[in-house]
Design a protein around this nucleic acid. Structure first.
Lengths: 118, 118
DNA sequence: AGCGAGTGCTTGGTATACCAAGCATGCCCA
DNA sequence: TGGGCATGCTTGGTATACCAAGCACTCGCT
């Protein structure tokens, strides 16, 4: 059922985030309350973590659980309830901010997109 | 880790929703691609369904997966109380962006304020 | 009554999520 | 050179999520 691929990608995403936060396997594992080998295996896509494990990992990495769920393909929707559908709120707000120069806007949006994991 | 109580409540919620949709265990189970005994046990709080099972059940009951995840206590409630007027649009948008971690939000806002200061 | 089809539940078993202990390698400092 | 100490990984085992088969019951129908 699980698409295999999603899980693999999820693992890589987690590893990336962990390295980005400059933390070791054991550090994250301890905070997330899982064993370090298991975390390792998750990162390599060998096992599919259950939901509460995912939540723990998200907490340890200080990223939102929703993000991980979405990455794992467990949430169908990109929650885009209000306003504009094509563009995220943040980008829209940045673009329309009169106090920012064009270069600054570009930089900010760049950082923002970087954070989203792309 | 899982609060026991949440899982019990989740099960009752699922059963309620199922009855409300006037469906039998087997019907929902088939659509959700789980066995009917297992679904029964989930409804009685005996087992904690994994995330993809939850997603399947949500689909079968035509309710959003997010709702179930929230019920299961897997998503911390975002509860974005809207609009503070004194705050710039950009900061507000950043703070309420579900895809950003707290640290990332802090960083982004930091960059933004830095730009305004120069 | 008797049966057929519906309901939810119990039970034995299998697959897999998850862990404790330990291995292998690399880095630092005496 | 060699012993701590950190890193990520392997392995054997346990707990539990999940299923197939079947039980006990109820409700219409004839």
């Amino acid at each position: 059922m699980g698409d295999e691929k999603s899980w693999k990608a999820l693992g890589e995403f987690i590893r990336t985030q962990r390295r980005l936060a400059d933390m070791s396997l054991r550090q994250v594992a301890q905070v997330a309350k899982v064993s370090n080998p298991y975390l390792s295996q998750i990162e390599r896509g060998i096992y599919k973590p259950s939901a509460d494990i995912l939540k723990g990992i998200a907490g340890a990495l200080q990223i939102s659980a929703e993000t991980l769920f979405a990455r794992a393909g467990l949430l169908e929707e990109e929650s885009t309830p209000p306003s504009k559908k094509g563009q995220p709120m943040v980008e829209q707000a940045i673009r329309t901010d009169p106090k920012l120069s064009p270069d600054q806007k570009k930089a900010l949006i760049g950082v923002y997109r970087g954070f989203l994991g792309n």
